[in-house]
Amino acid sequence: MNQFQYVRPTQQRTAITAVAKDPNATFIAGGTNLVDLMKRGVMTPQKLVDINRLPLTKIEHQKNSLRIGALALNATVANHQLVRERHPLLAQALNAGASAQLRNMATVGGNLLQRTRCPYFYDVTLPCNKRQPGSGCGALEGINRMHAIFGFSDKCIAVHPSDMSVALAALDATVLVSGPKGDRSIAFADLHRLPGDAPEKDTTLEPGELITAVEVPDGHFTRYVSYYKVRERASYAFALVSVAAALDLDGDNIVAARLAMGGVAHKPWRLAAAEQHLIGKPATEASFRQAADVAMQGAKAFKHNEYKLKLAPNTIVQALKTAAAA
């Protein structure tokens, strides 16, 4: 690992300026992904701006939403009374991610900004447009078992690894950021981007922009929820496919639904059409299956991930069944 300069500002403005003015600088919070990537030479920042002294850890209910500070730890959020009561789907998704130790280190902001786990991204000797624009996509014709079936481009077929983000996408969260040009809020769906011709850009954040909080609007998804994560072992593994499902039920009738998928695209994949399809339908396996079929329209597989065309809809059905039975 290269040497780097390390600063630990206590003022948000100082931190933002430090990163905004230096293209080789980056924020570090929990470090659980960045330190890993630096050890492998995938990321080589010359300057780390440690933001852990900034006062961004608060979790509080304001007006019509739950505001979660960007530096709140994943474990803290998952165990927080307000989160468990108002957004159990978020708590489930957080607890499905990583390990107890990592959840004690990783922050909400950092979780959103995780880089892909694509093996071609991780090995600096292999081609990867995300790591090294123009070098090619190793996964396109390679071992693409873990890769995208939606929203990919011929430049990149990687998937976003976060579980928490899948729940936040389903819950219509808003991301608050602060940058050199001031503060703004970003609808969750607009935070992460599709690879297109610039897979090196994971998000729509501008240089120096710092995530300060996430707001999750109040809703009726407090009971019939399920974060269903299919992985290759029972815990502590990234998703093959995961589904965040939330239902608002009136008896057996679906009043409202939220659905998002992980492990299938470069960003958390919200299933709006499938949600629409569910409204007014009975909460039965047949309805869930129809919604899953709607959700899968436009999916396309590669050589090694054809199974996702079947696993993804099945997991949607299973998540909805689990949510309805909760």
Partner: peptide, 8 residues
Amino acid sequence: DNRFGRYI
């Protein structure tokens, strides 16, 4: 990955 003869 047999194209590179390298473990992924």
